[in-house]
Design a protein around this nucleic acid. Structure first.
Ligand SMILES: NC(=O)c1ccc[n+]([C@@H]2O[C@H](COP(=O)([O-])OP(=O)(O)OC[C@H]3O[C@@H](n4cnc5c(N)ncnc54)[C@H](O)[C@@H]3O)[C@@H](O)[C@H]2O)c1
Ligand SMILES: NC(=O)c1ccc[n+]([C@@H]2O[C@H](COP(=O)([O-])OP(=O)(O)OC[C@H]3O[C@@H](n4cnc5c(N)ncnc54)[C@H](O)[C@@H]3O)[C@@H](O)[C@H]2O)c1
Lengths: 205, 205
DNA sequence: CAGACATTGTGATATTCAGCACAATCATTC
DNA sequence: GAATGATTGTGCTGAATATCACAATGTCTG
């Protein structure tokens, strides 16, 4: 029940439940049991129920969970029932893909500014937005109340940029650079690295 | 010691240790203690030692781990001391970024073919490679002994393509589609989804 | 509206994973 | 070459996480 004692794995599973529920909703279903949710999310029914019970009682005995209601609740728990403004640092190949990614154009996570250190790229456009110089980082972060940044710069520059972001008040970083960042405790960092993912898969082959 | 009983979290941490070690090697260091490795990888020294002890004794008391040697050993454990041939399905924005990603061009994970169902894209080029039609999937996978695939198609097509891949004998899938795939037990799937990562971070804000 | 049925929420239990502490071991110094 | 200092490898312990099992509670049908 206590907010702080919920393990991180539970939080991560909530996102997959949400995915599953949205998918079911699109298929026209209105109610889902923990068994169904579990099957599609790849976890046991008991796990689903226990995870949800950390935050309250959302289901009905004998019936299951009302999909729309549960979606709303999970979104509230994860605080994604509101818009979040992001910035992107690094307008390379990956940065371009991200800027054109539907979820960041129309969804609740909106990239409000793109930064790059390369003078040749600054003032050119990517998607809808103009690439800004790093000098304007602090200004935009403060002005737009940005708390989350996506890092898509080379590994060699990642730590340096991360330090700048932290200094500007960014509290969450999603990094694509294949390097573990050194940040203060209260700054949350997640990593996305396809090579690392592949390396863990070959072990099982 | 037993190969099968090693938890998946340990395997995933091995990749971060390897990253850290490579980084240290580049800085000209030759020996690393569990404390140093742990500091940069963000885990406790005891954790580092225990993880490594699952596979053998790689260190020297009083000194630490010889970096080059440990790299070699971890690479052997993860089976990344050999080249792996990958295929990529989906030559969209993300597919293009991946094809031009250095790690997939020069590293041990090599994308040997790209597929797309869009006739307008087939026979055009992305990076060095020609985009192939889905009809040639089975042929190439068998011919090149491909066991790993990267999935970069829209969510709506992901399950269908995954089924095709499994039918062709692919045993590991790295999926960028925001959907949990339904696959046989012996097929390993990892997911990369920036939105899911962001959703878990807002909880802590 | 009563009885059959299905499913939740959760205390208890089992299992997995992380941290601790120290003997064993090796390099280095004097 | 003995004494010192540092670090590993690991049994033990405790914490975190998953599973089980069932009472509680609702739905649905005839
Ligand atoms: N391309 C991919 O598909 C892919 C996939 C996974 C991970 N990554 C990783 O993502 C990162 C970016 O990849 P990419 O392919 O887009 O590289 P890229 O070289 O195409 O783009 C990097 C961009 O960062 C900018 N940059 C460099 N130093 C900077 C600094 N100090 N401040 C601000 N901007 C700076 C560069 O000007 C460039 O525009 C890399 O760390 C890479 O390892 C890439
Ligand atoms: N663009 C990004 O930065 C980004 C980031 C994370 C995740 N994703 C996810 O990755 C996937 C691809 O994203 P994208 O931006 O490249 O999309 P995209 O629309 O640019 O590309 C998708 C490609 O898949 C092809 N395709 C569609 N159905 C197919 C089928 N049945 N068989 C083979 N090919 C098929 C299309 O022809 C197209 O070329 C999506 O699931 C998206 O949600 C994208």
């Amino acid at each position: 029940m206590t907010q702080t004692s919920v393990p991180d794995v539970v939080i991560r599973r909530l996102t997959t439940y949400l995915q599953t529920l949205k998918h079911m909703a699109q298929r026209g279903e209105h109610v889902a049991s923990s068994t169904e949710i579990g099957r599609w999310a790849g976890v046991s029914p008991a796990q689903v129920r226990k995870d949800l019970s950390h935050f309250g009682e959302f289901g009905r005995q004998g019936l299951g969970y009302e999909i729309g209601f549960l979606c709303t609740q999970i979104e509230r728990i994860l605080k994604i029932d509101q818009d979040w403004r992001l910035i992107l640092v690094g307008a390379g190949a990956l940065g371009h893909a991200l800027m054109n990614y539907g979820a960041f154009v129309t969804g609740r996570f909106q990239i409000v500014a793109v930064f790059d250190s390369d003078p040749a790229k600054v003032n050119t456009r990517v998607g809808q937005r103009e690439i800004l110089p790093m000098e304007r980082l602090a200004e935009i972060i403060a002005e737009r109340h940005v708390e989350i940044a996506i890092l898509a710069v080379p590994a060699t520059a990642a730590q340096h940029v991360a330090d700048q972001l932290v200094a500007c008040g960014v509290r969450s970083i999603l990094s694509y650079a294949p390097i573990t960042l050194n940040t203060p405790r209260d700054v949350h960092v997640r990593y996305i690295d396809p090579v690392a993912s592949l390396q863990t898969m070959t072990y099982y082959l």
